[in-house]
Simulated scan of single mutants.
Amino acid sequence: MMTETILSRRTFLAAIPATLVACSAGPAGSQTSASAGLPPMRVHKTPTCGCCNAWIDHLRADGFTVEGIDVADTTPIARRLGVPDRLRSCHTAEIGGYAVEGHVPAADIRRLLDERPDAAGIAVPGMPIGSPGMEMGNRREPYQVLLFRRDGATRVFANR
């Protein structure tokens, strides 16, 4: 009887780390940054921008881990990351060695991280109605997600 108790305790204690990992992963089927292998994202934005916060909510709902950083002006950050002025929007993000400018859909960021193209980043210039964070009921403007290089060259990454 004593041997069974000791083995039972050992089995129980050995199972604790695996149980803790499984419990911290969240409900089955949920997508978290850790389970999806997504790097964390830093979003530089002005403190009063509501659409920036809505875009961050869109990303978090898709499983991204996002740190919002309030700054007075995102221009120096965008320039450091190689975002051409003509592609600017209201916030600039960094993820996995890329810049993400503006209201880029989470799916396009995932594609960027999966494909790893030779680029500085992707952008949705301006603030098109209907893009993530810029929802206005059923109103929607077609827009493009542009891939850009540090030399300023761009190409269409996605049509939305």
Score class of each variant (00 low, 15 high):
G96P: 09
A99E: 14
M134Q: 01
T154Q: 14
P132D: 14
F12C: 00
A18W: 07
L59Q: 14
G97I: 02
F157N: 07
P84C: 06
V21F: 12
A22C: 09
T5A: 14
R139Y: 06
H44V: 02
P117G: 11
N159W: 00
P39E: 09
P84M: 02
A106Q: 09
T154W: 11
S8M: 12
P76T: 05
T74V: 15
G137F: 03
T48A: 11
S131T: 11
C49Q: 07
A72S: 12
I16P: 03
R9F: 15
A99P: 12
A36Y: 01
V66N: 09
S89G: 13
D118C: 06
R79S: 09
A54T: 04
K45H: 10
Q144C: 03
T92H: 00
L147P: 03
R10N: 09
T92Y: 00
G126W: 00
A72E: 15
H58P: 01
V124M: 12
I16R: 05
W55F: 05
R110V: 15
L7H: 08
D62C: 09
L146V: 02
P117Y: 09
N138R: 15
M1Y: 08
M1W: 10
T48K: 04
Q31E: 11
H103E: 13
E67Q: 14
E115N: 06
P84K: 02
W55K: 08
D73W: 03
M2K: 11
C49S: 10
R80V: 04
S35A: 14
T19P: 00
R42G: 00
W55R: 08
I69Y: 00
T46Y: 00
A25T: 07
V43D: 04
I16Y: 03
R155C: 05
L20F: 11
P128Y: 04
G63K: 04
S131M: 09
M41H: 01
